[in-house]
């Protein structure tokens, strides 16, 4: 099994399927149980290293680790040595000295997780929980898990991803993972919010949302970060909403059983209207629940065993 989870592109079809199947079992092992806890990672320490604020992702990882009986340390930039100017390297060395087995890292710089995993500073397994505008692989896994629960096998399914692809790491991870799983992905965004080189991604790209919706099995709306509006990526919030927002009219043009996803937090009235967000075919709240199962699966597969051996697992001695 993988030693570090840095990019959705690192996962083969087989590995991704193993993670999703394991997440299915995690759901079955905790849903409706009197004791929602498994002893599997007892004695292991997981550090949540968050250089960027993210209550949602951090609590999801924290809950996942705690459900597996791991000890969890939350290390956030605010109020820690990081805000006093400590470098990523020194923070990593500190964590290594504390004996962390797994490090979940969120950083504003693309590649921070890769640096942490390959620098030799720490021997812990590294999980990328979002690095800059690069990737957020567990988000893609939980989206794929949610899609799979509703659509079954994702091979040849049509998934439309709408919104800020330029700044959003969710889009990149999703495109890569869904392509691995055999789905057809269409990205929809204004030209200003598409990154350079998007034509080389394994997906279709269009500027026209209305044309993409009728054939979709699922639509994933990405959050438009308000801070982007001042940077003139689009003329006004209202114009963005009119052209790229999912409202009741557009929702009705979707096939009957298509579902709506959103990684959260939502801007109601901006990229998604309130009635669509609250529709029963919107699975946004379920995505949060599924996030815990998927993260349990990843933590289990990365931390429970003896390590891959080749990379020198912590049990090597």
């Amino acid at each position: 099994m993988i030693r570090h989870l840095l990019s959705a592109a690192d996962l083969s079809h087989e590995e991704a399927t193993l993670i999703l199947d394991t997440a299915d079992e995690m759901a079955r092992l905790t849903e409706g149980r009197a004791v929602k806890k498994l002893p599997t990672l007892r004695g292991r320490t997981v550090v949540n290293l968050f250089f960027e604020d993210s209550t949602r992702t951090r609590t999801s990882f924290e809950l996942a680790a705690k459900r597996l009986s791991a000890d969890v340390i939350n290390f956030s930039a605010k109020g820690s040595s990081v805000s006093k100017g400590e470098s990523l390297k020194d923070t990593a060395l500190t964590l290594a000295a504390m004996g962390a087995d797994g490090v979940v890292v969120r950083h504003s710089a693309s590649g921070a997780a890769y640096r942490l995993a390959t620098s030799g500073w720490i021997s812990a397994n590294v999980l990328n929980a979002g690095d800059g505008t690069h990737e957020h692989p567990t988000q893609a896994l939980l989206d794929a898990f949610t899609l799979r629960r509703h659509l079954g096998d994702l091979r040849d399914r049509d998934v439309v991803i709408v919104g800020d692809v330029l700044h959003g790491r969710v889009a990149r991870s999703n495109v890569l993972l869904l392509a691995t799983l055999g789905a057809r992905v269409t990205l929809v965004a204004p030209p200003t919010l598409l990154p350079l080189g998007v034509e080389n991604w394994p997906c279709e790209v269009t500027y026209d949302l209305d044309a993409a919706l009728p054939g979709a099995d699922a639509v994933m709306m990405l959050r438009v970060q308000r801070e982007r509006m001042n940077a003139a990526f689009f003329p006004s919030a209202r114009e963005y909403s009119r052209r790229y927002g999912l409202d009741a009219r557009r929702f009705s043009s979707l096939p009957e059983d298509a579902i709506v996803l959103h990684p959260g937090p939502m801007n109601r009235g901006m990229e998604i209207s309130a009635d669509v967000a609250d529709n029963e075919r919107s699975v946004i709240v379920e995505q949060v629940t599924n996030g815990v199962y998927v993260r349990m699966a990843v933590l289990y597969l990365m931390l429970a065993g003896s390590g891959t051996g080749s990379a020198g697992g912590e049990d090597a001695a």
């Binding site: 099994m1 193993l18 199947d21 394991t22 079992e25 995690m26 092992l29 498994l38 002893p39 599997t40 289990y300 597969l301 990365m302 931390l303 429970a304 065993g305 003896s306 390590g307 891959t308 051996g309 049990d315």
Partner: peptide, 14 residues
């Protein structure tokens, strides 16, 4: 998930 030999070998599928 409850085995006592989990750490002795790579993680297995459930």
């Amino acid at each position: 998930m409850y085995r006592d030999d989990l750490r002795l070998r790579p993680a297995r599928a459930l």
